[in-house]
Simulated assay, not measured.
Amino acid sequence: MDKFHKKNQIEQKKQAELIQKDEFADFEGSKAELAFLKFTHFLARNRKSVFIGLASAIVVLAVVIGFFEYRAYLFEKETVTLEDLKLNHQKSKVGLDAQIQSLETFLQNQSTGKMELRVWKDLSKLYAEKGEFGKAAGFLEDAAKKIDTPKEIKALYFYVAGNYREREKNNTKSLENYKIAATVIEPARELNGFKAWSYYQAGRLSYLNGDKAGAKQYLEKAVKLDVAESGEDVKLLSSYLLLKLGKN
């Protein structure tokens, strides 16, 4: 009985496939019309599956669009809040400590994560004005690490952070920042002046830290650069340090 039932099912399946194959055998319209006809028949046979799939796609698309629109709304809201905060600082002549506290509070409460670079830059400036150069450098270093382009800004942040670290009396970290700035800006052909200063600072700090070979390498790079007349000072300073290295 089971064999007969199974055989009957196989025959029914074959017959259904045969009917499906021959369904449009006598159709005499164009290929486009035939394709459309087959498509409508497919929809008719699979209404439930098609509806569920289409509804799911619409729901997913709506969720994705809604998410990005909400993120854009939050970013705009946070931008306005930050601008109002800074404007209030200017109008009310708020002290450094109060400005720092309000910006750090804003940084903790903002949810998009897109305002960090702007706030870190502002906090770095405020801490530098306050004389806390370690914190000022830290914020600029964090900002520089998140920047991919433009390279000039990334290098500038590391360069200024190097200056702050040196004023903090942290020559090791200062040298590290100057080296990064020099490496990042090295491919740029139109910024030889900035490049020369980066080489010079890296060479000078290498010299102060006892790395004479490293100092010579950076200083020679600074001297060899073709800079504008305004950049001659850095070449003279580099040449002077090279002379000192030669005497030691």
Rank of each mutant, 00 (worst) to 15 (best):
R167S: 14
K179Y: 02
K121H: 13
A228E: 13
E116Q: 15
I185E: 03
Y159L: 10
A213W: 01
Q108E: 14
G162I: 02
N192V: 15
V223C: 03
R204Y: 11
Y207A: 05
S206Y: 04
A196W: 01
N209I: 06
L126H: 01
K121M: 10
T112K: 07
Q99N: 06
N109P: 01
N192A: 15
G214R: 03
A137N: 03
G203K: 08
F194C: 01
K216H: 10
G113W: 02
I100D: 03
A228S: 13
K216Q: 15
K154G: 04
V94C: 02
F133R: 00
T112M: 00
G134D: 13
S198L: 01
Q201W: 00
K212W: 04
A228W: 05
R165V: 01
L107H: 08
S102G: 07
L208G: 07
I180N: 01
G134H: 06
R204I: 06
Y157W: 09
W197A: 06
L107K: 11
A228K: 13
D211C: 09
V227F: 08
K93C: 05
E129C: 06
F106L: 02
M115S: 14
Y178N: 11
L107N: 07
R204V: 06
A181G: 11
R167A: 13
A222W: 03
V227Y: 08
Y218L: 09
L96P: 01
W197R: 11
D148R: 14
Q108C: 09
V160K: 09
A215I: 10
K216T: 12
F133P: 01
A182C: 12
T183F: 07
Q99A: 02
N109W: 07
F194M: 13
A202H: 03
S102E: 15
Q90G: 10
